[in-house]
Design a protein around this nucleic acid. Sequence first.
DNA 1: GTCTATAGCTTGATAGAC
DNA 2: GTCTATCAAGCTATAGAC
Lengths: 241, 241
Amino acid sequence: MSETVVTLKTAAKAPARRGRPPKAAAAERPAETSELILDAAEDLFSKHGFYGVTIREVAREAGVDTALLHYYFGTKRGLFDAVFLRRAEVMNGDRMRAMNAYAAAAVAAGEPLTPEGVIEAFVKPVFELSAKGGPGWKHYCALVSQTNANPLWGGEAMTRYFDPVVYRLIELVRQALPEAEPADLFWAYHNLSGALTLSMGETGRLDRLSGGLCRSGDLDSVLSYMVRFAGAGFRAVCAKP
Amino acid sequence: MSETVVTLKTAAKAPARRGRPPKAAAAERPAETSELILDAAEDLFSKHGFYGVTIREVAREAGVDTALLHYYFGTKRGLFDAVFLRRAEVMNGDRMRAMNAYAAAAVAAGEPLTPEGVIEAFVKPVFELSAKGGPGWKHYCALVSQTNANPLWGGEAMTRYFDPVVYRLIELVRQALPEAEPADLFWAYHNLSGALTLSMGETGRLDRLSGGLCRSGDLDSVLSYMVRFAGAGFRAVCAKP
DNA sequence: GTCTATAGCTTGATAGAC
DNA sequence: GTCTATCAAGCTATAGAC
């Protein structure tokens, strides 16, 4: 392979969106060209991966010329990085706030933290964005799911943007389970992480496997089962013998 | 995308290996050409995915001419399917036998089945092949990990070859937890499946996240934690309220 | 900012000699 | 079975008019 590992240090060499007239400040955004491109790329990358998508296909789906992709994002790789970057901070900001709010509420109420409560705060914002954030968020979740499973791309990209929320999760679970060893907590997280990223892909495999009994798009159920399953898992793994 | 979903119905339109002289019957196989090609393809596909690998790269790594890949496997897709097929039956045969052996031993000993025992039989053969089966098995595990996360390719391929072992797992866990509802079992399996496939990728993410405290290649630990985590998860999710 | 046109290269696949 | 030679198509990226 001639391609190197994703760095995400700079989104692109593109001129970015500095001198842009703030037409619709924050409400009814009239779909800027660069956002249209990102949306199309997000959709296609999430389904076919980086190499499975061509610049031409993205341009066609976005309804713009291929040259514009290079104008905005420099290279195909710059486009991918920009797609990954766009929603990472929003998603993880939501998760960080949800965990902090849960911890603060528990302290205020004088109640101890529970693994289930921490896990729910860690996971719920993801499914909420996926379910109610629009199709773009659904595509983005699938993209994260695949990127996490990739041995080359998953490393740097995930580390950079997702580690802080993971450390916060582990910190709070340790408060809930004070006897837990650090290694136990990391291994338990590893199990939770696999379940979460697989769920974010919504591959439909569970639907087929269960003969329609379970739907991988039923995110309320996904959340409920994940909280109970992982909560018990953390407890079992972190319990002192 | 012009590519359709993987079917795996026929490995390729290739002439297969009918009239092949059985030089080294089953012992010291002298590395047949088609096996060399499969090994190289397995390695590269597992790292870069289907679209991230070219026929020429596979040929170069295998040390053969590109035309030979077409001779043996017809198309690039035929090559991918052949790679996926080659080890699927071996792996899942091992898992099926391990689960049956566990169940038989428990019955013979007059002991009840446990979720932990069933899960260990379900998972252990995978890590055993990955750890001791040679580099090809490691690559194959990574390939399965990525294929499972792919919304388009994961569906058909996984269903066809991996469903039988999953159904056997669920059947045995239901014997261990008789009060379990079918939907509960499928949802619990979903959580286990995510952890298992993420582990099969050995992406090294846990190593970095934990600062070296945990190693994703330490398959004994992976197995031990997964059995305890998922065992408790199944129990929690399947318990009657 | 957006377009046309195109350079320069790589791709999957095949035909045919040996 | 294996190789050489090659095709038609598709690719990323850029230059430059408007």
